[in-house]
Write a protein that binds this DNA or RNA. Structure first.
Lengths: 210, 210, 210, 210
DNA sequence: AATGAATGAGGATTCATTCAT
DNA sequence: AATGAATGAATCCTCATTCAT
């Protein structure tokens, strides 16, 4: 009788929004803790406290502790899919494009660094998570990079190299720098913002003196 | 009663060798398990079983479970200090030298990959271990690379770039490729042996078409 | 949402009562076991079983196994502080007063004998517990006894003796008799109720024949 | 052939003496540790170290850890049986006799206080040990005291009181004072040497003012 | 939907005892 | 007879998960 869709749907939407907000709130708290002390050293009690909810409530939003980890992955995938698209203009100068691309990746790292740090450690010791991480985050990135490189090669802006390998080398470089930062290297940390240009300079012009 | 060194010292030496052997045996077993399922998902019972000793025996060789981790680190440090020395001949062609260096690092990675995988995950979530890892393994490597680069710059074999940053970029590249392999990228895996040359080619000659 | 104190406070109070009840329930069970087989021979599993809770629940009420011991001490201190007050009427005949006092202590012993037996053994081998026991239970008792004695001396009901030492002798006597009972002496056990009078008779009239 | 008893027996005796010496050495070390930290908090490794022998050697001298405790008891029983005899002279003045007796007990306590402290805690939580302690140490002492008292009563030196109970009261008093000292009462500790006279004075002359 | 007490399986660690050398 | 490494049962405690309120 009272089921007026015009009032009911907003109610559902509101509930969904509330749910999503709480979900995020828990996720954020957990990510911060995972990044800080690692997944296994973080207790559900700590997560609950940090998220200002009770321990029981966690289980209304996540199936179990592992599920929070997968939630962070999902979040990261979404973040990346939003960042990736608006990147390229073929006409642009190749090295400028490359610097831009690196900067964009760096921005993405910076913005999501807590979630990435929350995951990275577990990725290396949890094979299921690792596979999902690879197929949902790493592979798409590499594939996109690969096809961008192919385009540049096709129009002669960069020389012909195995694009599959080249894209891996670049992706590896990015991960490596991120890792080195995470491990606490002071030089990387203090020059974090100049690294894109340095890398571009190395990669495009080479080390051979002119 | 009669402290005949010719009989007593060997007895002590034998004991020491037995101790070292057992220590290694446990360490190896633990490293394999840590690399496979992570430190926290590995139980002391599993380590004991894999090392064919009793659980109690573990504690005759290691203060606690964490101590095994530090033992692996110690082992890695030793392995690296043995690998690092015989590196360079200044006269050599710069890009050849670079390829050799990468190959040597790669060999080191390959030989100690289990121990590295055993550590890497924990490094990212255990700050004490991380600091030790950085100061005992990463920093020395980077410093060595840095001084090698300075020499090459001084003699004009490579152009002048901030050596501190450059060495980080290279070290990051190495770590990143190792990580990408650990994460299971098939392209990296199947071309693992060609990567040194590819990387040298990129880094020295650049991507710009000639 | 509406913080109606009339409903909220009782809820908290109810929780507190529930907590206190469980706390007591565990304490009682533990005290009985400690008194019977000693602290170290009692396992947390046994305590849990005897208290009809799970092992984990113990740790919602006590920080660790030692903490149960300190809980028993706390309980004893409270019991004593309630018993101690209603003791004296100065006008009373000195030996009558003394008998009354002994009887009162005896009643206290009897009522709390399980808790005392639970503690006594550990007190002798755990210095921190011993110090707390001394300062919270023994010393106050002795001090009270001492001041009572001083009053009686002042009004000439008992002769002048070092009150500090005298009160220790009495307190020691009480402890010794309690111990002798705990050790299982049959004579003490069967004459437990007459001991106050006997002791008074010895202490006041002396052993010298009249 | 070579079994010349005149040389063999001393050899055996020497071996026995060596055995007894080691046995004592271990016992002393253990008693000190038990007295200090309690039986359960003392490990066999600690005993071995304190006695300068290996852990395995302990088991050549004692069946198990408990057996060391019974060894201490045995030692104490011997010590007491040697102390007890040369005590009394009926002719002596009763209160002098009593002071002497207390002093002798006190000396015994002082001399064996470490062994007593080693045992006392366990006695209260180990029923088998307690029973042995009672029948071998407490009961004989009480019985001796009782018969001494009966003699004094018979000759009219002290008035007629139930000797069984009286001897318990005295024994309890002694134990209580010892306990109070063990618990760390400073007054008892600093007046330890005057307590015999004070006690005699109380017990013989009573508290009633003359 | 939220709470947090209760649960109990699981895990690291200790330690008395054994036994090969 | 002495040693001390090896053993593994036993124990305390933690923590993810459940469920009654």
């Amino acid at each position: 009788m009272f089921n007026d869709p015009s009032t009911e749907k907003p109610a559902i939407a509101r509930r969904e929004r509330r749910f999503a907000a709480r979900w995020q709130q828990i996720l954020k708290a957990a990510a911060r803790l995972f990044a800080d002390k690692g997944f296994h050293r973080t207790t559900t009690r700590e997560i609950a406290e940090a998220a200002s909810v009770s321990e029981g409530t966690l289980y209304n939003y996540f199936k179990n502790k592992d599920d929070i980890l997968y939630g962070i992955l999902t979040q990261l995938v979404e973040a990346q899919s939003q960042t990736n698209q608006p990147t390229i203009s073929v006409s642009m100068d190749a090295s400028q494009f490359f610097t831009d691309y690196l900067n964009q990746r760096k921005k993405h790292f910076d913005k999501n660094s807590i979630m990435m740090q929350a995951l990275i450690s577990e990725i290396l010791s949890n094979s299921e998570l690792r596979e999902q991480y690879y197929s949902q985050l790493v592979e798409p990135s590499i594939h996109m990079m690969e096809s961008l490189l192919r385009v540049r090669m096709a129009i002669g802006q960069i020389r012909e190299i195995d694009a599959a390998q080249l894209s891996r080398v670049f992706y590896g470089l990015l991960m490596g720098l991120f890792l080195l930062k995470a491990i606490g290297d002071p030089v990387i940390d203090s020059h974090w913002d100049e690294l894109s240009e340095l890398t571009t300079s190395i990669v495009f012009d080479g080390l051979t003196p002119t």
